[in-house]
């Protein structure tokens, strides 16, 4: 099965096997993207589960579809934003399940690198959603501009200028958080 035959069989017969193919192909990516919005593993997994169920339903209302993921990304993003507004708690972002934190007995040089990573995640999750979204897509998921342009439905020029503003916002937030934490390094944890 290829992506286009899977899409065709979903469109024509709402074929669970075709859909399963698409889920398997994109679930990892979906999870990472849900992470951008939800900020913790449990909520990201919930959002993915709900979005795939919605997408399977939505196939019956669709005439044609060229590529699965850009369409699915809209469903996923919508679902995440709904979930966020439903349970509006300030501490959704739980850094420990976003990336692997090291054990205490790591050598101090590694530990400093780790501190730096902790700080970067903290900064990213303080930024506005559209800045965080595009920064993670470009620099962590390493998408090219044309891929971002399709997923976010904005022209290439807008990708570049949004990245400029996002990078600038990141830099400012990073500098202010560094200034805050620099005097007492123990405070970071």
């Amino acid at each position: 099965m290829t992506e286009s035959t899977a899409i065709q069989s979903c469109l024509k017969h709402r074929d669970p096997l075709g859909f399963e193919y698409l889920v398997k192909k994109y679930r990892r990516e979906a999870y990472m993207h849900a992470m951008i919005f939800m900020g913790n593993a449990e909520d990201a997994a919930d959002a993915c589960q709900e979005s795939f169920a919605r997408a399977f339903e939505a196939f019956s209302r669709l005439q044609t579809l060229d590529a699965f993921y850009p369409w699915f990304y809209r469903i996923l993003k919508n679902c995440c934003l709904n979930m966020l507004s439903r349970k509006k708690t300030s501490d959704r972002y739980r850094r420990q399940n976003i990336f692997h934190e090291m054990e205490e007995e790591t050598p101090s040089s590694l530990y400093e690198k780790q501190d730096e990573k902790v700080r970067i995640w903290d900064v990213l999750y303080k930024l506005p959603l559209n800045h965080r979204e595009i920064l993670i897509m470009k620099y962590i998921k390493e998408c090219r501009y044309d891929e971002i342009s399709v997923l976010l439905e904005i022209p290439r020029g807008t990708v570049m200028s949004r990245l400029y503003h996002a990078r600038k916002a990141f830099r400012e937030a990073y500098e202010s958080i560094t200034a805050e934490t620099q005097p007492s390094k123990e405070m970071i944890k």
């Binding site: 999870y31 997994a45 976003i98 990336f99 990078r167």
Partner: peptide, 26 residues
């Protein structure tokens, strides 16, 4: 300041988490 972003990566999800995303009606 933004070069540091390139060194970041997400925790890879466990397969059992991924498998829960969609259960075939079959």
């Amino acid at each position: 300041t933004t070069e540091s972003l390139n060194t970041m990566s997400f925790n890879e999800p466990q397969d059992e988490v991924l498998r829960k995303f969609w259960k075939s009606p079959y």
